[in-house]
């Protein structure tokens, strides 16, 4: 029997190597496992407050994979642990924030958890206020256009963040000035406790894009390759000078909104179970196995990540707390040290 002509695997047609997909999977798994430990540390009384990304792993990793490290700017939101890890933050960096240590790269232990801010990774500090990141991202994109710089900007938010006026003003300005910015909306179906059907009278966040004259596309947030593909097209469009795109990534958060939220009051276990059947990490693992990656490699990876996380927690706990005498630092500009 003759072999049929070999058709390209999905990742190949997207320009990714199998090793790329393995590394995507690694960061997704790492994101999930870090979240698990963050919640445990909160319940143990060691972490004041946490918010985790369970269920968002494909949305965050697949999209962030399109960002050129050290070139493009990223303006993430508070659930984007997966984005921060792709852009070079470590497990220890996450726990330094969880424990509010002096060495926390985001804020020196001053901000609440997940307020990513990292000059090296080109992640712009956000505000806790929902949707304020969008005008900031548009400003960075305007700077790129005016200065004729090469960078694009990828910014993130939840679907709840598309209701404040900041979103509207940012989308309109980006479209009018054809700015190199990609809006990635992680639609996890709930703005804290408000379901999407009570948040907007349209079926999709992506439907809003037409009102500004920009493309709006929908990605399957349970499929890391689909998220990568849609975001990559949007980034290529921005890099080509063709303007902004709205990418809606439909996903689901498995955990409560934060460690202070009781999600049993607004959604059913059945709904969660239905989404768990489409889990993005399971899907990615199934894809890798189908592409002949050894199961033992994936299992070893899990062990390595677990060991790395335990070491990161111990190391982070042993780092110094911020000195109260330095409280007012970073409030006003200072000369670089």
């Amino acid at each position: 029997m003759k072999m049929a002509a070999r058709t390209k695997a999905r990742h190949e047609s997207l320009g990714l190597s199998l090793e790329d997909v393995v590394q995507m999977y690694r960061v997704m798994l790492q994101t999930r496992m870090i979240g698990e430990r963050m919640m445990q540390l909160n319940r143990m009384g060691k972490a004041m407050f946490v918010g985790v990304a369970d269920g968002h792993e494909a949305a965050e990793v697949g999209s962030a994979w399109c960002i050129r490290k050290g070139v493009d700017w990223c303006v993430p939101y508070y659930r984007d642990v997966g984005v921060a890890l792709v852009l070079g933050q470590t497990a220890k960096d996450q726990f330094l924030g969880v424990f509010a240590k002096a060495t926390d790269p985001n804020s020196g232990g001053r901000q609440i958890v997940n307020q990513f801010s990292d000059v090296k990774a080109k992640m712009l500090s956000g505000s806790v206020h929902i949707a304020t990141q969008f005008p900031h991202a548009v400003g960075l994109a305007l700077a790129a256009k005016i200065r004729k710089q090469d960078h694009i900007v990828v910014t993130y938010g939840g679907e709840g963040a598309t209701s404040p006026g900041d979103f509207h003003e940012a989308m309109n300005f980006a479209a009018v000035h054809e700015l190199p910015v990609v809006f990635v909306i992680e639609n996890n179906q709930y703005a804290i406790s408000t379901p999407v059907k009570l948040q907007m009278a349209v079926a999709n966040v992506a439907d809003r894009a037409a009102a500004y004259g920009m493309p709006g596309v929908i990605a399957d947030g349970t499929d890391v390759l689909d998220v990568y593909e849609k975001t990559k097209q949007a980034c290529d469009r921005a890099r080509g000078g063709d303007g902004p795109t709205l990418v809606e990534v439909k996903c689901y958060r498995y955990r409560p909104h934060s460690s202070d939220d009781d999600d049993s009051r607004y959604r059913s276990k059945d709904e969660l179970q239905a989404w768990l059947q489409k889990d993005p990490i399971d899907k990615a693992a199934a894809y890798l196995l189908q592409q002949a990656v050894a199961a033992s490699r994936l299992e070893d990876m899990r062990q390595e990540i677990a060991a790395d996380i335990e070491a990161a927690i111990t190391a982070a706990e042993n780092d110094p707390d911020p000195d109260p005498a330095t409280l007012t630092r970073y409030v006003y500009g200072e000369d670089a040290e």
Binding site: S163, G165, D166, F167, H168, E169
Partner: peptide, 8 residues
């Protein structure tokens, strides 16, 4: 119409 108040 281009103010955030319109959107909200």
């Amino acid at each position: 119409a281009n103010q955030g108040t319109f959107h909200e």
